[in-house]
């Protein structure tokens, strides 16, 4: 396999990891006001992502860092082209991070309300904007941006609700399951709308149709989404979470499959790529380091595997 292919795959993997992991962080952040009644429950809901959101966010940092190193022109083109959306993404990530970290440290209810606002806005902005940016890359139309953004937000909401259902007990869990069902009613049609028209950068230029395997991925993503809703209905929280996670992972794979081999309009991977020395060296380092990283992240999820209950402070 060519090194550019390897690195495109690595970057697709990192972005997809970010979508899957931060997907539920964003969802939980947006749903916290809906899922909780009172401070103890609010802490219970946010506690589900408390130990892990920061590590999840690093998937994005690493994805972008890997783009910078492996495909500088892709990195520079994407970020300068979508300048203002990216500014808003950054603002969102800033206020969300600060809100999550400071929430437990402020003393007044009004300060806590500011943190809650930061978490809500800071989760919604990146969730919407990343969907919109990638949809725009594929379709170059405002409608597609909106559909992409709505799909991304609704998928995060569903994923987040399912995650809370999986990680909590008591009234919050019941509420999360109901919310998951409601959000799936939005996510499913949005998913059909967003995924059914998926074009392919590789074949669109040649005037050919999107390859079948991308269609298959898109279809599987939609099916997994529906399965997530059905499994939530049946009360199988773990399997429902597996399904929504798979749906996001399949969507991410289809997305990057469609971006191959021209991640930006008029820019091919070969043109954007760093030299073979850099790619080769980074490949070796990545091969050694990535298993450790994934390993200790999995371990951190294992440490916090218990369901949370609402504890009065």
């Amino acid at each position: 396999m060519e090194l550019t292919t390897v690195w495109f795959t690595v970057i697709a993997f990192l972005w997809t990891g970010f979508f899957v992991l931060e997907g539920f962080d964003f969802g939980v952040g947006m749903l916290a006001p809906v899922l909780s009644r009172g401070e103890a429950e609010r802490r219970q809901v946010l506690g589900t992502i408390g130990p892990v959101w920061d590590g999840n966010e690093v998937w994005l940092i690493t994805a972008v860092g890997a783009m910078f190193a492996a495909f500088p022109a892709w990195y520079a083109g994407l970020l300068s082209e979508f300048y203002l959306p990216i500014v808003l993404v950054l603002v969102g990530l800033i206020v969300r991070g600060v809100g999550l970290e400071w929430r437990g440290k402020v003393h007044h209810a009004s300060d806590r309300a500011w943190c809650d606002m930061g978490i809500l806005v800071g989760s919604a902005l990146p969730a919407f904007l990343w969907g919109a940016v990638f949809a725009d890359l594929l379709h170059d139309s405002v409608t597609a941006m909106l559909v992409g953004g709505v799909f991304s937000v609704s998928l995060c909401l569903l994923h987040g609700a399912v995650f809370v259902a999986l990680k909590t007990l008591g009234p919050v869990r019941a509420r999360a399951r109901r919310t998951a069902l409601v959000t799936s009613a939005v996510a499913l049609p949005a998913g059909v709308a967003a995924l059914s028209g998926i074009p392919s950068a590789g074949t669109a230029a040649a005037g050919a149709a999107t390859p079948v395997w991308i269609w298959a991925l898109a279809l599987a993503a939609t099916a997994a989404l529906a399965a997530g809703a059905a499994l939530t209905w049946r009360g199988r929280d773990g399997w429902a979470f597996t399904a929504t996670a798979s749906s996001i992972a399949l969507t991410g794979t289809a997305l990057f499959g469609a971006l191959w081999p021209a991640p930006l309009p008029g820019l091919t991977l070969a043109e954007a790529a760093s030299g073979p020395y850099t790619l080769q060296t980074l490949t070796w380092i990545g091969l050694v380091a990535l298993p450790f990283v994934v390993g200790y992240q999995i371990w951190s999820y294992w440490v916090f595997r218990r369901r949370l209950v609402a504890e009065p402070s």
Binding site: P51, V58, A70, P72, G275, I285, S300
Partner: peptide, 26 residues
């Protein structure tokens, strides 16, 4: 500069930020 400058940035994220963020949560 991406070919040269991007490498330490990618390594920073992979080798340092993951460590820092995951373990601070723990």
């Amino acid at each position: 500069v991406g070919d040269v400058f991007g490498a330490p940035l990618a390594l920073e994220a992979l080798l340092a930020f993951f460590l820092e963020s995951t373990f601070i949560g723990l």
